[in-house]
């Protein structure tokens, strides 16, 4: 099926400086793509350009169908929630008779139907974001662009909104591009993750594949590979899932940091060839000796390129 969004050699400038460089991207119908990257990576700028809000400095964006952008700030008009969604539909060009039904459907998809008659001023932060996303869902665009729809929410509200948004986006027939800051959001929402750093696409693929084998050490660190062991000609990067505390483990080390978590502790352990991070349910203190087993991880050469073959 032909792509709904085709981006070729795209560069975008902001305040005279280029913040997005030479991006190639293609989004197919039904695909949910997460743009992931650290602060200042150019994710929102790229999204604005995809939506036609910001101009391209170079390259091209081909949109095959209508594109709706849900901006980061959930600016709602001083009226009821349903009226806000209907207003978005009016902007989108939906004739008046169909607006109410579509607005209610979108609110139901976002588990916000019970808020329909409530004035926007009476909504909590999470509810505002829910209604904000519902406006985009109600428009039923060919391509829906969402800019950090979960920013600034507490953990529980965040999680619940991610789950509802994930369901709503799966129900949508068009393509979705969503900017997220949190890796977990990308895994929850997307079929495909595009990692941006310093305005460049540094990784692009299904979430599971990307996490299993990040193409570069830089991407690996961004995706949570926070342990490293020096190897000949490079290093092995690991995630906590790759490292296990074991009484007869192959590596001896010393605990240098202990962070409490819901299910135990997160340990930073200095070993002879590096520093590893792992989870454990036991009680640990800084300075304790520990033995570790490493099962997994990805090897990179000195320039940070992935080496073929897993550790």
């Amino acid at each position: 099926m032909s792509a709904l969004l085709d981006v070729s050699g795209l560069s975008v400038a902001r305040g005279g400086a280029r913040v997005v460089h030479d991006v190639d991207l293609s989004v197919a119908p039904g695909e949910v793509v997460a743009l992931l990257g650290p602060n200042g990576a150019g994710k929102s700028t790229l999204l604005e350009c995809l939506g036609g809000v910001a101009p391209a400095a170079a390259g091209s964006v081909s949109r095959h169908g209508r594109v709706a952008t849900v901006l980061q700030a959930p600016g709602l008009a001083r009226r009821t929630v349903r009226a806000n969604v209907e207003l978005a539909l009016a902007w989108w060009g939906v004739p008046r008779p169909g607006r109410r039904t579509r607005a209610m459907e979108a609110l139901e998809q976002m588990s916000a139907a019970h808020l329909a008659a409530r004035p926007s001023a009476a909504l909590s932060g999470g509810e505002r974001r829910r209604v904000h996303v519902a406006r985009g869902v109600a428009c039923r665009p060919d391509v829906l662009l969402l800019d950090e729809p979960f920013a600034g929410l507490d953990g529980e509200t965040h999680q619940s909104l991610v789950e509802d948004t994930s369901s709503a986006l799966r129900d949508a027939s068009g393509a979705v591009v969503v900017v997220v800051h949190d890796r977990a959001d990308a895994w929850a929402l997307a079929d495909r993750v595009v990692v941006l750093t310093e305005g460049r696409v540094v990784a692009d693929g299904p979430p599971r594949d990307l996490l299993a084998a990040p193409p570069t050490a830089q991407v690996a660190r961004f995706l949570g590979y926070d342990g490293h062991l020096a190897e000949s000609g490079g290093s092995l990067l690991t995630r906590p899932a790759h490292v296990r505390v074991s009484a007869d483990g192959a590596l001896a080390g010393r605990v240098v940091r202990v962070v409490g978590t819901e299910d135990g502790v997160l340990l930073d352990v200095e070993v002879a060839d590096g520093r590893l991070r792992c989870r454990d349910a036991g009680e640990w203190r800084v300075g304790d000796g520990v033995r570790l087993d490493v099962a997994g991880g990805v090897s990179y050469d000195v320039e940070g390129r992935r080496r073929t073959g897993r550790h």
């Binding site: 952008t69 901006l71 700030a73 600016g75 902007w91 989108w92």
Partner: peptide, 12 residues
């Protein structure tokens, strides 16, 4: 409110 008019523009 921040974003209200910009959101209107983004929805056409």
């Amino acid at each position: 409110p921040v974003g209200l008019l910009d959101q209107g523009r983004a929805f056409g």
